[in-house]
Every structure is written in C-alpha cells, then in structure tokens.
C-alpha cells in the first residue's frame, strides 16, 4: 500500500491528540510541558508533509522556526517552574492558584 499524505496527517493528528490528552490529564507541570513539546513536534510533521507535497522548501524553514520557538518556550517555562518550586516546594499544578505570593 502506498503511503499517502493522509497517512502522515493522521499520524500527526494522533500524536497531537496524545499530547493534548496528556496536557489535560496530568498534573505534574514538567510533564505538561513535555506534552506541549510533543504537540509542537506533531505540527512539525504536518509542515514537512505539506512541504513535500508542494515541492516547496518553505515548510522546512518554518519547522526550523518552530524548533527555535520550542527551545525558547522550554527555557522560559522551566525557569518559571524552578522559581515556583523554590517558593512552593511543589510542581503540582493543582496547588498553583495565585500568580503572586
């Protein structure tokens, strides 16, 4: 059976779904951030697949942009997490009710 664009899109959708469910269900803030990374990665697959269909490398450039955004997000998010952990001694999001304390 030939592998079509639809196969890649369904794969990306399934991975995105996994990340989304994980983000909603888990309460460990670090694992929630990793679920966000998984969702970003699945969108990268969609970019690469459509880039291949159109024969235009623009999608690849935007995957690289996405890498940079993911790196920035991880750096800032983890810095905030470490700061919260210093004050509250927990990373369980159920305990984060106020921004300033």
């Amino acid at each position: 059976m030939e592998i079509t664009l639809t196969h890649y899109l369904v794969l990306a959708g399934a991975v995105f779904l996994t990340g989304m469910v994980g983000f909603i269900v888990r309460r460990n803030a670090i694992i929630m951030m990793m679920c966000v990374e998984l969702m970003l990665c699945s969108t990268n697959i969609v970019f690469a697949a459509f880039s291949r269909v159109h024969g235009d490398g623009g999608g690849h450039v935007f995957v690289l942009m996405n890498f940079a955004v993911a790196a920035a997000e991880a750096a800032i998010g983890l810095a905030i997490l470490v700061e919260i952990f210093r004050r509250r001694r927990t990373v369980n999001v159920d305990n984060f009710k106020a921004l300033m304390e």
């Binding site: 592998i3 890649y8 794969l11 670090i30 951030m33 990793m34 990374e37 990665c41 990268n44 697959i45 690469a48 697949a49 880039s51 291949r52 690849h60 995957v63 690289l64 890498f67 993911a70 790196a71 991880a74 750096a75 983890l78």
Partner: peptide, 26 residues
C-alpha cells in the same frame, strides 16, 4: 518520519535540537 518525507536536514536537526538540547534541559 522527517527522513521519510525527504527532509534529511530536518531529521538531523530534530535529533540535535529536540532530542539533544531541549530534552537535556528538561
């Protein structure tokens, strides 16, 4: 998957940046 989509550069960057740098930070 990136390599299959004829994007070898992205496959390498995926390993270097994502699996390497970002996950080590995590």
């Amino acid at each position: 998957i990136f390599a299959l989509l004829s994007a070898p550069f992205l496959a390498v960057m995926q390993i270097l940046v994502y699996a390497g740098a970002i996950m080590v930070l995590f």
